[in-house]
Every structure is written in C-alpha cells, then in structure tokens.
C-alpha cells in the first residue's frame, strides 16, 4: 500500500484526531495560564498560609509524573464520587500540572520587575490591586513569554498523553489505525509529522508574535 493510498484512507481520521488535540491544547492552555497567574501571585504573598498552599501545590505537581496525575484524576477520583469525562479529566490534569510550572515562571517574572516600579506605584498612591494590575502585570509579559513559549510547546507534546485515558485525539487515532492495519511506520510517522507541523508552523510563530506584541506594548508604555 502506497503512502498516498494510506493517507486517502486514514487521513480524515487522523485530521479529526488532530482537531481534538487542538481542542485539548487550547482548553488546557487557558486553564494553565489562569492557574499560573493565581499561584504565581500566591507564591509571593506575605501571608504564610497562602504562600504555603501555593508552595505545596507547586511542589506536588512538579514532583510527580503527569501520567500518574492524569490516571489519578481519571481512575481514582471516581472513588471519591467525582467522575469526570475523559476530555475534562485530561484538560484538568494538564492544566494543573503545567500551571505548577507556569506559576514558577510568573513568580520569576514578577521578581524581575525593577523595585522602582513598585515604589513609584506606591508613591502615586495606587491601591495594591491596581499596582499589580496596571503596573506590574503588563511589564512581566516580555519577561515571562519566552519561557512560557517553551512550556506551551511542552504542553502540546504532553497532550498526547490524554490518549491513554481514552480521549480520541491524534495519538489515540494513530494507535487505533496501527492496531487495525499494522502500518506502523505510516501512521506513527504521520502523527509525528502533524505534531511537528503544529509546533513549528503554528504554535511557535503564534507565541513569537505574542512576544513581539508584548515587547512593543511595554515600549510604547514607557515612551
């Protein structure tokens, strides 16, 4: 069977799987960005309890394997009466795991904002919330976006794991086709290519564009 015949027969299935992968990616991206922001700020709180919660959360999710967390959410939570759909379980596990890594990036970014900015905002009598929202947050984007971009590419790769809790994504479809046709080179090779194209031609350019945008915004703000 030629490769084109293979594509003609199974291409649609793989593309449908790719759509699911993109959905998982976008949902878990939104979740992880929100979690990173919240826990990154909590990590810097002066309140020991809030800081402690954030530290425990971050250490826990960075200390255990994503696959273990995923299986725990999907297979063990039902023991406690929380049954999540496979898709939701996948997104939650990915979001929680990457949120922990992202929180550390946010923390580093906030610490990298010059102290004078805090003092100036204080001197101008901004409320603490306004200080964070209007002065600090806009300035951390150029700092945190490069490492966050790396993390997001890692997230795209990690979405493959949700196939193991029965989410019908690209990896799942590739595995399925492999078990029917045993054309392993074709189906896994195609899947690898699709992931590569998504990362190199879509995700990375998008994140670079965000980086340029963030740098420009701050440049305009300072001028």
């Amino acid at each position: 069977m030629s490769y084109f015949a293979f594509l003609a027969e199974h291409g649609t299935t793989l593309l449908l799987g790719t759509v699911t992968t993109i959905k998982v990616l976008i949902c878990s991206m939104i979740l992880y960005v929100i979690i990173s922001m919240i826990f990154g700020l909590m990590r810097l709180s002066k309140n020991i309890i809030i800081q402690g919660i954030a530290t425990v959360y971050i250490e826990f999710f960075r200390g255990t394997s994503l696959l273990v967390q995923l299986f725990w959410v999907y297979y063990v939570l039902p023991f406690f009466g929380i049954s999540l759909e496979a898709f939701v379980a996948g997104v939650v596990a990915l979001g929680l795991n990457f949120g922990a890594y992202g929180a550390e990036i946010v923390r580093g970014g906030i610490l990298a904002v010059p102290k004078g900015q805090w003092e100036a905002a204080h001197a101008l009598n901004f409320s603490p919330a306004k200080r964070i929202k209007r002065i600090i947050i806009p300035q951390i984007f150029p700092i945190i976006l490069p490492p966050a971009a790396n993390l997001t590419v890692e997230l795209l790769k990690a979405t493959a794991l949700v196939a193991l809790v029965t989410v019908v994504d690209l990896t799942f479809e590739a595995k399925q086709i492999n078990s029917i046709t045993w054309l392993s080179a074709q189906c896994f090779g195609t899947a690898l290519l699709i992931y590569y194209i998504m990362a190199r031609l879509a995700l990375v350019p998008f994140l670079r564009w965000l980086e340029v945008l963030a740098a420009k915004k701050v440049g305009r703000g300072n001028a």
Binding site: K157, S184, F188, L192, V204
Partner: peptide, 13 residues
C-alpha cells in the same frame, strides 16, 4: 524534530 514531537509517539514509533 525530536524536541517538538511527543515522547509517547516516538516510543510507539
């Protein structure tokens, strides 16, 4: 290529 594709599929491959 190796860095931007999932380890899981590389394993299968």
């Amino acid at each position: 290529f190796i860095r931007s594709t999932p380890l899981l599929i590389q394993l299968f491959f």
